[in-house]
Amino acid sequence: MYRKMLLSTLLVCSFSALSNIVVIVNPANESSISAEEIVRIYTGRSNAFNAVNLAESAPLRAQFDEKGVGRSSAQLKAHWSKLVFTGKGTPPAELASEEAVLDFVANNPQAIGYVGADKVTSAVKVVHTIN
C-alpha cells in the first residue's frame, strides 16, 4: 500500500516535472547566469562551470535541450560529435537521475545542472527557471 502510494507520488512528480525546469548551482557559487550563458555552457562554448546533464533516457533531458539550449536532442548530439571527434571538447557528464544531479551540484562548488522545479532542495541554488 505504502509502496503504491510512493509509486503514484513518483509518477505525479515525474509528470509535473515536465512543466518547469530549474537550472541549479552550488550555494557557494555567487555568479548570476543568463539564458545565453546556459546555452554557451551546454554547447561547449564556455568552460566556466563543471556542467552535468541528465541521461538521454530521462524525459527532462529532451525538454531541457529544446527549451534550455534551443536545439533538438539530435541537433545537439550532432553538434557535440563535431567537437568530440576533432578533439575540441567533451560533452557534460551524463547522470542517471535528478537526485544524482542534485547530489553532484550540492557537492561541487563549480557545478551547474538542472532538475525539475519540484525536486529542488536547499542544498543547491536556483539561478534560472525554464518554463
Binding site: K77, A78, H79, S81, K82, F85, T86
Partner: peptide, 10 residues
C-alpha cells in the same frame, strides 16, 4: 574538413 568523416555531424 575536421569532421567530414563524421556523417552524423551534418
Amino acid at each position: 574538413s575536421d569532421f567530414k568523416d563524421v556523417g552524423y555531424a551534418y
